[in-house]
Design a protein around this nucleic acid. Structure first.
Lengths: 196, 196
DNA sequence: ACCTGGATGTCAGCCGCTGTCATCACTAGA
DNA sequence: TCTAGTGATGACAGCGGCTGACATCCAGGT
């Protein structure tokens, strides 16, 4: 006999996603999610600091992958090249098989402002972490923050595109194109500035 | 005889900032803020959709200024040049006199994760709005989103720097430097990409 | 004098979230 | 084998954010 079914967090996440997708986020109470897997509301909040977190826990892996990509970039690479290298590692974390699951999850987020807020917050945290890593490589400020933020922006735009219905390309190739577009934009900007 | 003291939202905002600054955000209840200006909790929530909003209402003016800057940019300007032009308008909205007030407000935000989340959300909304404006000017995707997001990032970094203790430069000049740095970063990146 | 409308007050109630303490299987050590 | 933990969970009370519904109150127009 087992004391409790193992993997409580995972089971809660799964049940939460299903309930959110059908009834909607606000129409689902934390107690209902817990009850769906035979637990109590109190236990739900022991695993997730708040109701929204149940959709976002696990993103530390993404950050870790990003950091590994930064760490394994060639020593002499420029900040944006380091970021581009990291983005290549990141795309490996989203194989095409995961697209349908990601789509479902994203549709839930897109329907609720509070969830969008949390999602954005996570991306910001990611950018901050990447900026730290760049600074460790010797990149100064504001270059480190700019490069990190740009990388996360490219990732965000590409991820959304990757999820779009009818999109066939891999995340990696989309990221490549968006990144190129960013460089092109900068190339077309007036270089000499005269702001006072 | 007046029915009610006018300017309820403004009075609530002022009281809220003071209370948050002294007791802290979480240690201050909405009812306390309302009571401080002779109103009830219910009325507080009639003026602000949630407790955090009391610190952020008024940002529509920033967005409006940003949009005007986009609209008044020369017709042939490249996306990033349009954004640079808009940023010049924006800096006019933060004269040095406002620095101490902004610092107080920011210190409250910096001490509370939920407020940081909301702040970031507002910046994202701003970026989305700017991207819309760029698209209206004929800029395509993902260029519009990239340029808008970059502009907001430059603003964010510059704003934080502007608030730092000991910083003497105007927001406009800081923005100019950060923007230059962004262009320099892109210039140093490898242009030919080979992502598959 | 009457009516209308907008800002406010009052009250009840749900839900997110937390502190506290008990429970209950299982485990390591005597 | 007994026993003292140990860690995840349950039970319960309670606060504060937030909302819906309804009453009130007072200016301004008719």
């Amino acid at each position: 006999m087992v004391r409790w079914q193992p993997g409580a967090p995972e089971r809660l996440q799964k049940a939460a996603l299903e309930l959110f997708a059908t009834r909607g986020f606000e129409q689902t109470t934390a107690a209902e999610i817990a009850q769906a897997v035979g637990l109590t509301e109190r236990t739900f909040f022991r695993h997730f600091s708040d109701k929204r977190e149940v959709l976002f826990q696990g993103q530390e892996l993404l950050a870790q992958t990003f950091l590994e990509g930064v760490a394994t970039a060639p020593p002499g690479a420029s900040p944006l090249d380091v970021v581009a290298h990291a983005l290549r590692s990141v795309s490996a974390f989203f194989p095409d098989e995961r697209r349908s699951h990601s789509r479902l999850r994203q549709s839930v987020i897109d329907r609720n402002p509070a969830l969008q807020e949390r999602e954005r917050h996570k991306l910001t945290t990611l950018a901050t972490t990447v900026a730290d890593a760049l600074r460790t490589r010797g990149v100064g400020e504001p270059a480190a923050t700019l490069a990190a933020e740009s990388g996360v922006t490219v990732f965000g735009i590409s991820f959304i595109q990757w999820l779009r219905e009818g999109e066939e390309r891999s995340l990696a190739s989309i990221i490549g194109e968006v990144f190129d577009e960013l460089l092109k934009l900068a190339g077309n900007a007036t270089v000499g500035r005269e702001v006072r």
